[in-house]
């Protein structure tokens, strides 16, 4: 890693460093060592089922940020094939007019067999971008289902994208990403039934006990409804309301990563494997290490 080139904004050094992080050769502790003061970038995630229009909406969001002269990093995640381990990363196809700016760094990532809609070392990448003074980071998840909530642990804001005819409204009432979203967007407003979908979502959200996110009706294709969405995004960046279920998930993933990065974990796993200790004893051992009563 060429730290001087990296600090001077050399794209290839940044790209090579991201590869090191992806392979697990570089951790956020190392990054902190090179960059003592790190500003926090505003991290947005855009998520939703396959085909609802995440990439097309991303393009408009990126355009808007570029017009404001922000320094932007995009991490677009697509699934790895469970059969070959390969991946076809095609989110770039949608980003046509914003691909030329020096203020935009766009990287496609494959999940490499991990569940949860984003790779686990994405938080280290966010750290690197933040250290290099990127102001906005946009994570585009794989087409995610209700259970894929890991994205909440690395992003400050979540935009959930829905489309008309993507399942009946009971889907929305089930728990999951819906509870964690800061903004809900119904895309494809140029199609019939989009309005109906938005109204159904609003109704479902009214029944929820938590403070519910606002629902926006947009069309990425016709570029309609984005003005209100951008205003809402600005508003949220100013006054972010923490919600309890999101904090719960952030905490549980942070805990998980602490656990797997714990030095003694291999030894404990070995003992478990050879049945020298029980799960309960393993937990006690870990709790003692972390000084939990």
């Amino acid at each position: 890693m060429d730290i001087i080139k990296l600090k001077n904004g050399d794209r290839r050094s940044l790209s090579k460093t991201l590869t090191m992080i992806e392979k697990g050769d570089l951790k956020s502790a190392d990054i902190k060592e090179f960059f003592p003061a790190i500003n926090e970038a505003e991290v947005w995630a855009i998520t939703g089922s396959p085909g609802v229009g995440k990439s097309c909406i991303s393009e408009h969001i990126i355009d808007n940020w570029l017009q404001e002269n922000k320094k932007i990093a995009v991490l677009a995640v697509d699934p790895s094939s469970p059969l070959s381990g390969g991946a076809l990363l095609g989110d770039r196809i949608r980003i046509s007019n914003s691909d030329n700016s020096d203020n935009l760094f766009y990287r496609s990532l494959a999940t490499r067999g991990q569940s949860g809609a984003i790779p686990s070392n994405i938080s280290d990448m966010i750290k690197l971008f933040s250290a290099l003074d990127y102001e906005k980071i946009l994570i585009e998840t794989v087409g995610a289902g209700q259970a894929e909530v890991r994205v909440a642990s690395v992003s400050k804001f979540i935009i959930l994208v829905e489309a008309p005819d993507s399942g009946d409204i009971l889907q929305a009432e089930k728990a999951g990403l819906m509870e964690l979203a800061d903004i809900i967007v119904v895309n494809k407003s140029d199609l019939e039934r989009a309005n109906e979908k938005a109204e159904q979502l609003k109704l479902a959200l009214q029944l929820s006990e938590n403070e519910s996110p606002n629902v926006f009706l947009i069309s990425a294709k016709e570029k309609l409804g984005f003005k209100d969405l951008f205003l809402e995004m600005k508003e949220l960046e100013k006054n972010k309301k923490e919600n309890k279920s999101k904090s719960k998930i952030s905490l549980s993933f942070a805990w998980e990563s602490l656990l797997w990065n714990y030095k003694g974990i291999d030894l404990i796993l070995q003992k478990l494997e050879s049945e020298k200790i029980t799960i309960k004893e393993a937990i006690n051992e870990i709790m003692e290490e972390f000084k939990i009563d």
Binding site: S81, S84, G85, G86, A87, L88, L89, R92, I93, R94
Partner: peptide, 19 residues
């Protein structure tokens, strides 16, 4: 190439050399 286990990034149509 994907089926051979590689990560393939497809740019889409009509790209400039710079892009």
């Amino acid at each position: 190439l994907r089926d051979a286990g590689h990560e393939v990034i497809y740019t889409g149509l009509r790209r400039t050399p710079e892009e």
